[in-house]
């Protein structure tokens, strides 16, 4: 039964990828007056436009064009970036580890802080702790990530000067590439200066990126705890005089934790979207900055490539979360 469920979810991934690629096809080929103009960029020469037209198969009938589009997608030929003049897929592949390091750090911060704070809120329902944290979480959701990133950079790097303003690591300190994650690589190679430098560079962007999801996780956890606290099975534990520590850390944590797992996948979407602007502000060499710069320069192949990659990452992560949830919650019926 579980196997069938997993199979269904994986099939869903492929369906979503199909939809995404089709949408990008429609956006690239159907909507623009002249797709070649977009594909060749704003400052293209006549020859470049002609080359793009040929590459896109504009002389071929629509259905053949669509098949061509798919063939190119599947063989990894996603076009040349106008800005970097390199194949988009290679550009993207190179930047994924930096983005994953930043995104995962932000997720870890959001979960590690958000769940305990949310539990605190729920347990101290309607006390000043609850009210203060609620106001903070409402404010956290309303903060524009790009502006928060700029403000943090302004205060902590430029005015206080305690953290680096841009980049991923100090020049010349980059550790030997093993996983592409600087923190892990510097630990693996026992490279302390690289570890310190990369951590210092990570703090601000990760915090800026974590704020929104953190605020939401606090709210979701709080609501889940309140829901659990209203249940009869908590009363059973109280009637049995179970230690409060056990009730809270074991029973409430698991019952309230499950709904939180379901939003983690969703949160990852916000992190991916926020990643674009945070990387731009902090000059972080990942997917987000690549895409943001592509937006600013209208580097069309790069934008489309990033959209597809981000959509795939998102749907895969969400499917994984769903499957993990199915394992965790015994009540799930497949």
């Amino acid at each position: 039964m579980l196997a069938a469920y997993i199979l269904k979810r994986v099939a869903w991934i492929f369906f979503v990828i199909f939809v995404v690629v089709t949408i990008t096809y429609v956006l690239t080929m159907v909507i623009p007056a002249n797709p070649a103009l977009l594909w060749a960029g704003p400052h293209a020469t006549k020859e470049q436009i002609e080359k793009a037209a040929k590459y896109l198969g504009l002389d071929k009938p629509p259905f053949e064009r669509y098949l061509m589009y798919w063939r190119r997608f599947l063989t990894g030929d996603w076009g040349l970036s106008i800005h970097t003049k390199r194949p988009v897929l290679a550009d993207l592949a190179k930047r994924i580890p930096a983005t994953m390091e930043l995104g995962l750090s932000a997720m870890i911060i959001a979960i590690a802080l958000g769940v305990p704070l949310g539990i605190l809120c729920g347990v101290r329902y309607e006390t000043w702790v609850d009210h203060v944290l609620r106001i903070f979480s409402l404010a956290g959701v309303a903060l524009p990530t790009f502006w928060l990133a700029i403000m943090m950079q302004l205060v902590f790097s430029y005015w206080l000067g305690i953290l680096p303003s841009t980049g991923r690591i100090d020049p010349g300190l980059a550790p030997k590439t093993i996983t592409g994650f600087y923190i892990i690589d510097s630990i693996l190679t026992n490279n302390i200066p690289a570890l310190i430098s990369s951590l210092k560079h990570l703090v601000l962007p990760a915090l800026a990126l974590a704020t929104g999801p953190l605020a939401i996780i606090v709210r979701v956890t709080r609501a889940a705890v309140l829901d659990v606290l209203s249940r009869e099975h908590v009363k059973t534990l109280l009637v049995y005089g179970m230690p409060r520590r056990v009730i809270l850390m074991k029973y409430i944590a698991k019952s309230a934790g499950l709904p939180v797992v379901t939003v983690i996948g969703l949160e990852f979407g916000y992190v991916l979207a926020g990643d674009f602007v945070v990387e731009l502000v902090f000059d972080w060499p990942g997917l987000g900055r690549y895409a943001a710069e592509a937006c600013l320069t209208l580097d069309y192949p790069a934008i489309m490539g990033t959209v597809i990659v981000v959509a795939i990452i998102y749907v895969v992560v969400n499917t994984l979360v769903d499957i993990v949830y199915a394992f965790l919650d015994p009540r799930i019926r497949y």
């Binding site: 249940r231 099975h233 059973t236 019952s255 499950l258 009540r331």
Partner: peptide
């Protein structure tokens, strides 16, 4: 049904 926690054995 309500007296027992649904996510524990």
């Amino acid at each position: 049904m309500a007296s027992l926690n649904p996510v524990f054995r």
